[in-house]
């Protein structure tokens, strides 16, 4: 069952998330994909773009994507291929106190490496400051650039967007 908050406001709730979450053990091994696609829609570029078959939609294109976190190496290829911009890569091993979250960002201006931005949760609420550690915008991203932020440990569950600080 999808939460009311998701179906009426577009904001995934605590009850929606667990389905997409990798195990503690897998998280400790390095960057890994988080797929926040909770509704059956006819779509499968996540499956066709992953070189390691870590995401499977299967025969029925309306089925939900199933993720095998063990197969994923966090390469981020699928992140810019998902039309729903529903895929993120997180890494809880960045430092003692910080994690990394990589997200698609289709707006201008793009931030630059080293910039400090305001990190937002799924409802667009400002949660903390974050540092941009990587911006990838080559032909392979097809105009869906990837931005990687450092955020305080524990926040990787909630930070899904950011805005520039004027």
């Amino acid at each position: 069952m999808l939460s009311d908050k998701l179906t009426s406001c577009g904001i995934a709730d605590h009850s929606d998330i667990p389905a997409s979450w990798p195990s503690e053990e897998r998280l400790k091994k390095g960057p890994v994909v988080v797929v926040e696609c909770f509704q059956e829609i006819p779509c499968n570029p996540c499956e066709t773009s992953c070189p390691r078959q870590a995401i499977v939609v299967g025969e029925n294109i309306n089925d939900l994507p199933k993720v095998d976190h063990a197969k994923c190496n966090g390469c981020t290829i699928c992140v810019s291929r998902c039309p729903g911009l529903a895929i993120f890569v997180i890494d809880v091993n960045y430092s003692e106190t910080e994690s990394l979250v990589t997200m698609p960002y289709e707006f201008l201006p793009l931030p630059e490496k080293g910039d400090t931005v305001s990190a937002l949760d799924r409802a667009g609420k400002e949660c903390c400051r974050a540092k941009v550690v990587k911006v990838v915008n080559t032909k392979a991203q097809g105009k869906t650039p990837l931005v990687t932020l450092t955020i305080p440990r524990g926040m990787e569950k909630s930070i899904r967007f950011f805005k520039l600080i004027p």
Binding site: C9, G10, Q39, I41, G84, R160, K163
Partner: peptide, 12 residues
């Protein structure tokens, strides 16, 4: 599609 809605919601 809720994935479209979520892109907008997270921008506030």
């Amino acid at each position: 599609y809720l994935v479209h809605a979520s892109k907008i919601a997270r921008a506030g």
